[in-house]
Design a protein around this nucleic acid. Structure first.
Length: 502
RNA sequence: GGUGCCGUAGGCAAAUUGGUAAAGCCACAGGUCUUUCAAUCCUGCGCUUGCGGGUUCAACUCCCGUCGGCACUGCCA
C-alpha cells in the first residue's frame, strides 16, 4: 500500500532512494495478564533482530485493554524480562488504557462512515444462534442480524434496556490476501471470518464501550507507523480481519510475518500449564540471558552458516532475515537449552561467575562472607565447568558451606573399609603440623598415608573424599580439600569420619 | 464441524532455491582423561524427505489427492 502510493506520487528514481530511507518500525505488544512468557519473548527477539538488522525502531506497547486481568506487577515483570534479555526498546512503553480517546475517535469515524454499527443482540440470543448453527453442522458465526436496524428498531431495543456492542462490517464476498514474510501468500474469504466483528464492548447507545484487541491493535499500529507486524502464528486468523480494518481506516497495510510457535514436548502451543514458561522463572533457575536469547533465536531461525550454534543477539541481528525462518512449530527442548547454557557458563571467568553465584548461595541460606573473594572465586573456578544452571551450584557446593554435612550410605560404607581408619589417621597427623594447606602438601600427605597404612592410593583417595565431603562423588578432591582447609573444617570432618571408621 | 497453516532421523535443523539428501547441534551408546561425578576430546548411532500419484532427463523442492499435527473459530489478548 505504502509503496504503491509512493510509486504513484514520485518519479521512479526517487522511489529506490526513499525505500532505503524509510525506517523499519516494529513493535512487541505484550499483554500484562501474566509474566513475560517465553513465546512472547521469542516474538520480541525476532522483532528486535529485524529492527536492529535494518537500523529501525523497536517499540514496546503494553496491551492492557483487558481491565479484568491486567496487573501492574505483570507489566513490571515484562519490562524487567525484556531488559534482562537485552531487548532494549526505542520507544515506549505505551499503554493502551491511556489511549482510549484515540480508539473512540476511530470508532466514531467508522460509525459515521457506515462501516460499523450498533448491535443489540443479547448474549443469550447469541448462544442460541450458535447452538442452532452447530446443530445444523454449520460453523458458528454472527449472522449480521442487526446490520440494518431502523431508527425505530434501535429505539425499541434501547427501550427494552438493551446495551449494544459495536460491530464492524465484514463483507462475505471479500477475498483477503497478503504476502507473509514467513509463509508466502496467505488468503482468506470474508465469509470465513465469523460475521461482523465486535470492536467495542457493550455500553449505553450514546457512548462507546471498551474497544477490543483486534481493533485497538490496528489503530495503534497505524498511529505508531508500524511498518512490519511480526507476531506468532496464532495470530494469522486475525490478520484478515485487521487488513479490512486498515482499509476502513484509510491506512496503509503493513507487512506481516507470522513466526512459528514454540511447542510443548507434546506438540501443543506452549502454555503456562507446561511448567516453567516465564522468563523470570528461567532466570531464577540460573539460565543466563545470552544462552536463553541464543536458544530462542535458534528455535525457528538458523544463521546463514547453519553450523553456527552459538551467537549473541547482536551477531544474529547482523545476519537476520525472515528467509531463514522455518514455517513449522518447534518443540521446546530442555536438553539443548541446558547444553547451550552450560557452554555459556563454562566461558564465564571465575570472578564474574562468583558475582552471579553469590545470590544463589545466599538464597540457599549458606553462611559466608561475600567479601571472602579468593575463597569464593576458587570455589567458582572449581565447579564452573560442571554447571548447567547457576542454581546447580547450591547442591554442588553444599559440602563446602555447611559445617556438618553428614555421611551418605555409600560414604559410610567406604569409611568402614579396612585400612581407612589408619589412612585417615595418618592424614590427620600430617595436618596437625600444617598451617595453610597447599596442593603439593596435600599430595605428599596422601603419599604418606599410602605408605603408613599400607593401602592403595585409590583407597586413600576414596576414603578422603568420603570423609571430607560426605559423599563418593563431587568436584575435584584436592581443590575441595584446600577450600575446606582454608575454613578450618577439614580436620573436624576427618575426626567425624574416624569415629565411623573405627 | 469450518477455515488456515504445517509435515526432512527421538528433538532443533541444513541442502547454492528442481541437480548426488540426510551437513551441523542436542539426546543416546561406547571409549578417553581422572581419586569420583561432571566437563573435555574421540568414535558410533539414526536414511531416502508423512503417504500415493503426476510433471520432468532430474522432485525434499512444482501440481493433484490423501493422512496426520497444530492454530484459530469470544463482547480474551
Amino acid at each position: 500500500m505504502t509503496m504503491l502510493e509512493v510509486r504513484c506520487c514520485f518519479p521512479l528514481f526517487l522511489f529506490s532512494s526513499l525505500i532505503s530511507v524509510m525506517s523499519v518500525r516494529v513493535r512487541i505488544a505484550p499483554s500484562p495478564t501474566g509474566n513475560l512468557h517465553i513465546g512472547t519473548a521469542r516474538t520480541a527477539v525476532f522483532n528486535w533482530l529485524f529492527a536492529r538488522h535494518h537500523g529501525g525502531q523497536f517499540i514496546l506497547r503494553i496491551e492492557d485493554t483487558d481491565l479484568e486481568r491486567s496487573r501492574p506487577e505483570f507489566t513490571q515483570n515484562i519490562l524487567d524480562g525484556l531488559t534482562w534479555l537485552g531487548l532494549n526498546w526505542d520507544e515506549g512503553p505505551f499503554f493502551q488504557t491511556k489511549r482510549m480517546d484515540l480508539y473512540q475517535q476511530a470508532i466514531r469515524t467508522l460509525l459515521d462512515n457506515g462501516l460499523a454499527y450498533r448491535c443489540y443482540t443479547s448474549e443469550a440470543e447469541l448462544d442460541e444462534m450458535r447452538a442452532a448453527q452447530e446443530a445444523r453442522g454449520q460453523a458458528p458465526r454472527y449472522d449480521n442480524r442487526h446490520r440494518h436496524l431502523t431508527p425505530d428498531q434501535e429505539a425499541a431495543f434501547q427501550a427494552e434496556g438493551r446495551l449494544p456492542v459495536i460491530r464492524f462490517k465484514i463483507e462475505d464476498g471479500r477475498e483477503i490476501a497478503w504476502k507473509d514474510m514467513v509463509r508466502g501468500t496467505v488468503s482468506w474469504r470474508g465469509s470465513d471470518l465469523g460475521g461482523d466483528m465486535v470492536i467495542a464492548r457493550r455500553a449505553p447507545a450514546d457512548e462507546i464501550g471498551q474497544p477490543l484487541y483486534n481493533f485497538v491493535v490496528v489503530v495503534d499500529d497505524v498511529d505508531m507507523n508500524i511498518t512490519h507486524v511480526i507476531r506468532g502464528e496464532d495470530h494469522v486468523a486475525n490478520t484478515a480481519k485487521q487488513i479490512l480494518l486498515y482499509e476502513a481506516l484509510g491506512a496503509a497495510v503493513p507487512e506481516f510475518a507470522h513466526t512459528p510457535l514454540i511447542l510443548s514436548p507434546a506438540g501443543k502451543k506452549l502454555s503456562k500449564r507446561d511448567g516453567v514458561t516465564s522468563i523470570s522463572d528461567f532466570r531464577k533457575m540460573g539460565y543466563v540471558a545470552d544462552a536463553l536469547g541464543n536458544y530462542m533465536t535458534l528455535l525457528g531461525w538458523s544463521p546463514p552458516d547453519s553450523t553456527q550454534e552459538r551467537f549473541t543477539l547482536a551477531e544474529a541481528a547482523e545476519q537476520f532475515s525472515f528467509d531463514r525462518v522455518t514455517k513449522a512449530g518447534a518443540k521446546f527442548d530442555w536438553d539443548k537449552l541446558n547444553w547451550l547454557n552450560s557452554q555459556y557458563l563454562h566461558d564465564i571467568p571465575a570472578d564474574r561467575l562468583t558475582d552471579l553465584l553469590i545470590p544463589y548461595w545466599q538464597n540457599a541460606g549458606y553462611e559466608f562472607d561475600p567479601g571472602d573473594r579468593p575463597w569464593l572465586e576458587q570455589l567458582a573456578a572449581l565447579i564452573g565447568a560442571s554447571l548447567v544452571r547457576l542454581e546447580d551450584a547450591v547442591e554442588m557446593s553444599r559440602y563446602l558451606f555447611i559445617v556438618d554435612v553428614g555421611f551418605s550410605d555409600t560414604a559410610t560404607a567406604q569409611l568402614q573399609q579396612d585400612g581407612t581408619a589408619a589412612a585417615l589417621q595418618s592424614i590427620l597427623d600430617s595436618l596437625a603440623s600444617t598451617q595453610t594447606l597447599t596442593a603439593d602438601e596435600a599430595q605428599t600427605m596422601i603419599k604418606t598415608a599410602v605408605s603408613t597404612a599400607s593401602v592403595k592410593k585409590g583407597l586413600v583417595m576414596r576414603s578422603l573424599r568420603a570423609a571430607l565431603t560426605g559423599d563418593m562423588q563431587g568436584p575435584d578432591l584436592i581443590q575441595s580439600w584446600l577450600l575446606l582447609n582454608q575454613h578450618q573444617i577439614d580436620q573436624r570432618r576427618l575426626q567425624q569420619a574416624l569415629a565411623i571408621a573405627k
